[in-house]
Every structure is written in C-alpha cells, then in structure tokens.
C-alpha cells in the first residue's frame, strides 16, 4: 500500500466537496486526508487529497475525478513536493510537567498558543510524519484533544497545476 498526494482545482460552488467525497465512497477509495481551501481566483477552490492505495487506484481515482464537471485540473503531487500540515494539540499540563512539555515543543519548533493552569495548546506545522512524532511524545502527558488540517501541498519549481490539461478538453 502506497500513499499518494493529489491536488485538484475545482469549481468554487456548493456541492463540489460532496461530489468528490461521494465518488471516493462509492468507488471504495481509501482516503487518508482531504483539505479544501480558497485560491487566488474566486472561481476555484483547491483540494489536496492523500490517498492510500496502489497505482491502479491512483490512476482510477484521478481519471474518475477528472470526469466530474466541477473538477477543472487535477495533478499528482510529486514526492519531493512541499507538503505541510498544521496541528493544534491541547495537552494536560501541571506545574510538574509544564517545563518538560515546553522542552519537547522546542525540539519540534512548535509554538505555544495558549497556556492555562491545567492545559497548554501547542501549534506545529510540518510534514505529517513530524506531527505524528510530536503527538507520540506528548501522549504520556495526556492529549486532551487535537485538530489537524490535513495535508496541503504544492509542487517545487515553476510547474503549476494550471499547466495540466483537463480530460474534458482532450476529447
């Protein structure tokens, strides 16, 4: 089982996320994460999807997604692409553990965004594996809740998703 990251420019309309998510569900694709954001143009949103599967599933998923009318461009993100995720984690803290938690945060270059007597909220951006490692280190102290954005990614160099050809333009 491999992991692939796919970027897609989709119409910025209601219902598009449903179409994409429903496509994954009915075709049985296994999605690790999905994030949606605005782009530089109002007309499009950008989706970043992390897929678990093999080359067959990757190929099928990209082609099936490309067929959706609201999907304008789709691209597999290269393995060396810049790929980031943001984590917010609330850790149980008391006077005895606070300094240890701050020490771990420094090692990972996490930011302290909220401190209270019984809890600390930390923010960390990075590759998902780095976030996983950070969370593992915090688990013994008591992770009260956490939120991750899902991966967002962009190709290195000057190649852009806009350079891709929409399947619907080819036929």
């Amino acid at each position: 089982m491999n992991q692939y990251t796919i970027s897609a420019l989709v119409a910025n309309k209601s219902g598009v996320l449903t179409r994409v998510a429903a496509l994954f569900a009915r075709r049985g694709y296994n999605i690790e994460s999905l994030s949606v954001c605005k782009t530089e143009t109002d007309a499009f949103s950008r989706m970043t999807i992390v897929l678990n599967g093999d080359d067959y599933i990757l190929g099928q998923m990209m082609k099936q997604m490309d067929k959706l009318i609201d999907v304008k461009k789709i691209k597999r993100v290269e393995e060396d692409a810049v790929s980031r995720e943001l984590l917010l984690v609330k850790v149980k803290t008391d006077s005895a553990t606070r300094s240890q938690i701050l020490e771990i945060s420094q090692i990972f270059r996490a930011k302290v965004v909220d401190v209270s007597i019984e809890a600390t909220i930390l923010e960390l951006t990075g590759k998902p594996s780095k976030l996983d490692g950070f969370v593992t280190m915090l688990l013994p102290y008591g992770v009260m809740e956490l939120a991750r954005t899902g991966v967002t990614a962009i190709s290195r160099g000057k190649t852009c998703i806009q350079d891709e050809t929409d399947y619907k333009e080819k036929i």
Partner: peptide, 17 residues
C-alpha cells in the same frame, strides 16, 4: 472516449483516447 475506461477492467497494450 472515457479515459477512466482505459485499463479499468482489462489492462491494455495500446490505448487511444
């Protein structure tokens, strides 16, 4: 005419979209 049908069920040697 449907790219998603290429290699979907039977892998092919040459495909024409």
């Amino acid at each position: 005419i449907d790219d998603a049908e290429i290699d979907k069920n039977v892998p092919v040697t040459y495909s024409v979209l």
